[in-house]
Design a protein around this nucleic acid. Structure first.
Lengths: 228, 228
DNA sequence: GCAAAAGTGTTAAGGGTACACCCATGT
DNA sequence: ACATGGGTGTACCCTTAACACTTTTGC
């Protein structure tokens, strides 16, 4: 900003928070981790998880702290989505909130942490009523995810390191909410040399078994031609 | 956010601001409106224009207020870009700033307002040194603009209501910073039926004269197939 | 041997890109 | 008549989209 800060120092009284939209993938569906509010206002409703940021804390760090507190996970890929700043958006007072979207592996998070918050996974097409403007936050995060997932290799964050192509395709179908042609999908994957096929197979989903692949980040850096 | 606000009410001391990235188009170049800081800190350097937001003011409204204060223009198309929240980003204290990008007609703004701020236009490939992280703000806004301008009819905000195809092409070349094939460009324009050709010509740029076009918003709403 | 999921190629259509000349007019 | 910027069409290539059968193996 550009005006003398002293002019306002005494009078501005606005809280700053982050809210996390946490995506997971399970049972071929894109899911969201929400917490059951045990406190006022809007006690009993569902909400995203968020926190106020610390006076000396980077905004990004606050988002990571929130995610860690809920899931026990660190070094998770997060993206800032949008800042929500309507004057009356939070009934408990003036709060501006920046949203971050994260993708975690449902198999990896720490259940203890999650239980502490009464958190629960919901498929994105069957969300409960959310507090404040959290529904808008979710919608914008999903929209952004659908846009970005086609051009950047970020969806892999929702799968284990080793994954099969049927898994990957199901993930994309779940995120984009539309069927994908198997052969066209696999041809595209074949062009991405940083998606490396292993000789090992996953035998848990079929009798024939599906080859495992992994995303080789170093190879991706060389030629970033992602497009699905 | 999700924790009891009272827990933090007394201790959080963070200011909230907006900064505006104001684009203009002149002499076939994309330009940016910057102000010369007449106050500390960083007095004498150039910066984006911004303000702290009011206690009861929507974040979007604050951005519009800032733009109005500088240009005298209202109802200008603006988009939120990104929020910058590093703890030490502003040397005058803890300030979080959300950036907005706007596009204005250089021929329309109120020079009186502008002069009051010692504002000046700079071509985007020749910017002066900027305060704090304003350079990052500008970079992310330009990147976003380049992405969005291909898929949404927003560039028209940088041209008068009636414009010619040579003008429009030069605008796109200026924004994208790359040459565009004239015939391919015009074929695409021809497909967009909401770009309506007038019988009137602009005779100021050539002897032959170039037909005026205008962007018909109502027609666009019907089939939103923008792609340049 | 059969059910169930994994894996594999070809064709047609549309979109993108590259490219060179004529037109209208003011001087 | 010539200089200047406005306007036009075609061929090739690559990407996308549609579509059906074979393979493997546990039961």
């Amino acid at each position: 900003m550009t005006v003398d800060i002293r002019k306002y120092k005494e009078i501005q009284q606005i809280k700053v928070a982050v809210d996390c939209i946490i995506f997971g993938f399970n049972d071929n569906r894109l899911e969201l981790l929400l917490i059951h509010r045990g406190f006022q206002p809007e006690k009993g409703k569902w909400s995203l998880i968020g926190e106020f940021i610390g006076n000396d804390e980077d905004l990004d760090d606050a988002a990571n702290r929130v995610l860690y507190g809920l899931s026990g996970l660190e070094n998770i890929y997060m993206e800032q989505v949008k800042t929500f700043g309507k004057a009356n958006r939070d009934s408990s007072g003036r709060v501006i909130s920046t949203t971050y979207s994260a993708m975690i592996l449902k198999s990896q998070y720490n259940e203890e942490h999650v239980n502490k918050y009464n958190a629960k996974w919901f498929p994105i097409d069957n969300l409960p009523e959310l507090v404040f403007d959290h529904r808008d936050m979710v919608d914008s995060a999903i929209k952004r995810l659908r846009r970005r997932v086609r051009n950047f290799p970020i969806a892999f964050n929702l799968l284990p390191e080793k994954f099969t192509l049927p898994q990957l395709q199901a993930l994309y179908e779940g995120i984009l909410n539309e069927p994908i042609d198997k052969r066209n999908f696999r041809r595209k994957v074949a062009q991405m040399k940083y998606l490396v096929k292993l000789s090992e197979k996953d035998m848990s989903e079929s009798k024939k078994g599906a080859y495992y692949y992994y995303f080789d980040e170093a190879l991706y850096e060389i030629e970033q031609n992602f497009n699905l």
